[in-house]
């Protein structure tokens, strides 16, 4: 990555971090309901991969920890926050919530809340790309625990069999909800598991964005060149619990501190300062500007946006009826 890109990405990562921390606060204030899964600690994963890919061009799908992936693809943070507030202006018009952010225009194909559910959907998106002949790829971001679902294996088999243009990114944060990978999974290194399907794979540090970017570039190039699927495992850590109801009793504060020593944002910041590309004051300015943007625009927009109308409760269950009448009534032209 060029220095200018790194500075831009640092600013984005600060937004991603502060956005999530502001969600936490809004949840405590009961502005946000339901389940809330936050991303701090893992920012280099999404950012490193998407810098190597083409946000808004490539199709991205993920699980329920989805706010940052949506924003990275180009979703407006205001609409993402408004969705968490359940507002009509939200990215899913208040019908989805935190776990179901979508932005089809930006080719962010959504967050899904059944662990592993997006695997076959991603392969299907890749199948559609293959049929239509485009140069896009499908990118599926999921956690390590998703690999213990049956559809993981079913999907790896089909993706390899049909050489589908799909990149599977495994953000291995070492915990499936509150159970550590050692206690749930016979194989710690997830990339080894796809060898069974002849899928090329790689593993790297998921905290250092330069490392993620270099590995992701090779992975993305492999898939885009028509060589079929690739599996990239990124070793990472989520600072907060699985969701807001999780007090992290299953792991030690010491372990958390070790990971925080390798914070993806601070590592990139320090590298840019050492290189003379920015100063600490510059960084503090970014933080201040980001917080001001979140408060004055993102939160303000979400607070002031209207609720969905109760009359529209059943809107979006089915396709707009008028457009479907020929098939519903059999009176096709």
């Amino acid at each position: 990555m060029k220095i200018e890109d790194k500075k831009r990405v640092l600013r984005e990562m600060v937004l991603h971090r502060r956005f999530e921390e502001r969600c936490y606060q809004a949840y405590i204030e009961r502005k946000i309901g339901g389940f809330l899964h936050l991303y701090p600690g893992q920012e280099a994963c999404c950012n490193g991969v998407m810098e190597a890919a083409r946000p808004g061009h490539d199709y991205v799908i993920t699980g329920y920890r989805d706010h940052v992936h949506a924003i990275k693809c180009g979703a407006d943070p205001k609409e993402v926050m408004a969705e968490l507030y359940g507002k009509e202006t939200g990215s899913s018009k208040g019908r989805g919530g935190s776990m179901h952010i979508f932005d089809a225009d930006k080719r962010f194909m959504g967050g899904y809340a059944l662990v592993g559910g997006p695997f076959p959907l991603a392969a299907g998106i890749a199948k559609a790309i293959q049929l239509k002949g485009g140069d896009e790829i499908a990118i599926c971001f999921l956690g390590d625990a998703a690999n213990n679902q049956g559809v993981f294996h079913e999907t790896m088999n089909m993706a390899a069999l049909w050489k589908l243009p799909v990149l599977f990114v495994c953000e291995n944060n070492l915990y499936g909800i509150g159970t550590s990978i050692e206690r749930s999974t016979a194989v710690i290194h997830q990339h080894k598991r796809v060898a069974a399907y002849n899928i090329p794979a790689d593993e790297c540090d998921g905290q250092d964005i330069d490392i993620v970017y270099e590995h992701a570039r090779k992975a993305v190039d492999h898939v885009r060149a028509g060589n079929g699927p690739f599996f990239l495992e990124l070793m990472t850590y989520r600072y907060r619990g699985h969701s807001m109801s999780d007090s992290r009793g299953y792991r030690s504060r010491e372990e958390e501190e070790v990971w925080k020593q390798r914070d993806p944002i601070l590592m990139l910041r320090d590298r840019l300062i050492t290189a003379g590309a920015m100063t600490m004051t510059d960084y503090e300015t970014i933080e201040k500007e980001t917080d001001a943007y979140i408060e004055n625009e993102v939160i303000k927009f979400s607070e002031e946006s209207p609720e969905p109308r109760v009359e529209d409760l059943e809107k979006y269950v089915f396709a707009d009826r008028e457009t479907q009448l020929p098939w519903l009534t059999g009176k096709a032209a």
Binding site: P120, A122, L131, E154, T155, M158
Partner: peptide
């Protein structure tokens, strides 16, 4: 074979794959 797909015996997998393809208009 690209349009008439003999699938493995993986009902959850291939059903999800078809659904994912349908998101893009297939």
């Amino acid at each position: 074979p690209l349009r008439v797909m003999d699938t493995p015996i993986s009902e959850g997998g291939f059903t999800g794959l078809g659904i994912g393809a349908s998101f893009l208009g297939i």
